[in-house]
Design a protein around this nucleic acid. Structure first.
Lengths: 146, 146
DNA sequence: TATTGTTATACTCTATAACTATA
DNA sequence: TATAGTTATAGAGTATAACAATA
């Protein structure tokens, strides 16, 4: 009975996922450098820009899949650059809302354009229908959790 | 003229890719810890196991998307654990072939089983046909390059 | 007691440059 | 001159634990 090699690494979804992710993050970081951002900071800024009144650091951590202690440092940097502000909400004084400044919103849009353009390197050959399926699958993977 | 928010971060393929990747890498690392491995070491070992005569460090770097200098350290660790050996090929004395030991091949198979089981947490809801499509898309993203 | 944010620390991963030995 | 491997270093990302303020 022949003993095969088993499924090769090139068919391992975990491997393919992390390799493609590394690729995309790499080109995105290069594009964001012109705006003084990296993907993690950019993601926090993007979330802050999606609401008028701000988003709590805890929510940011949950959406991005980061530890809350990491979010503190990311918000510190964005705040130092004048792209977001920490504000206190009405009811709960434990919470700090991350609110995008006008300048932050401008930077987010400019950065988005450059990031989108850069990512067309790796994603250029993928059609829109396929991208939509990819979004769906990746969202379900995230939702399923660990 | 209404100024919208633009496409939200949750629809950004780069973001979704890195978040799902982080998720899968996290659970895989946890599973590999029982075997004294992490994903990067495991990937190098897996490649070495796919050939009888070994694979050059340069090839490993190219396939995994790592810098050759990182591969040196990964191979150092695997060799110290007795899972691979560096061997000199016939013709070119610059090249070092990474060859899996018998023990390395055993560990690779045991680790594969635990890693595959662990990754069913995030991937459990994805059917086989969809996984195949996902493999195809992720491979094309990699091939397209930066 | 539980939750939000914060500080601190250690470890892993990534990026770069410079060097050697062979070709 | 070019290629494979190696060494070294700095910076970014990840994982934990402990703590203060508030609920």
């Amino acid at each position: 009975m022949e003993v095969g090699m088993g499924r090769p690494l090139a068919d391992d979804l975990g491997f393919l996922l992390s390799r493609a992710s590394g690729q995309v993050v790499r080109v995105t970081n290069a594009a964001l450098a012109d705006h003084g951002l990296r993907v993690r900071q950019y993601s926090v800024l993007a979330l802050a820009c999606e609401t008028e009144d701000g988003i709590s650091q805890r929510e940011v951590a949950a959406v991005l899949g980061l530890d809350p202690s990491q979010v503190v440092l990311l918000v510190d940097e964005l705040a130092a650059a004048g792209l977001v502000e920490r504000q206190a909400p009405e009811g709960d004084r434990r919470t700090r809302l991350v609110v995008a400044t006008a300048r932050g919103r401008g930077v987010r849009e400019a950065a988005r354009q450059d990031a989108d353009a850069a990512v067309e390197g790796p994603l250029g050959l993928i059609g829109e229908a396929e991208r939509e399926r990819l979004r769906d699958v990746l969202t379900r993977i995230w939702t399923a959790g660990g």
